[in-house]
């Protein structure tokens, strides 16, 4: 099966980042869910490294 059958499926998009990309897809008649994303640990690299170490 090519690419797990992607070309035969209805495209359903999760958008993480610029919300205009999600809006454009909806405007064009496609399904897209926006994620209200923020960087892990508020963007603090040290805290992030520690969390990764802890497997979180």
């Amino acid at each position: 099966m090519i690419l797990n059958g992607l070309f035969e499926q209805e495209l359903k998009v999760v958008n993480i980042g610029l919300d205009s990309f999600q809006q454009a897809l909806e405007q064009a008649g496609f399904t897209a869910v926006q994620v209200n994303w923020s960087p892990p640990a508020g963007g603090d690299e040290d805290v992030m490294a520690a969390l990764k170490k802890l497997g979180l």
């Binding site: 499926q9 495209l11 359903k12 998009v13 999760v14 958008n15 980042g17 990309f21 869910v33 960087p39």
Partner: peptide, 11 residues
């Protein structure tokens, strides 16, 4: 959306 099949990432 359990049948999501593609993720667009722009972070």
């Amino acid at each position: 959306m359990p049948d999501a099949n593609l993720v667009v990432i722009s972070v």
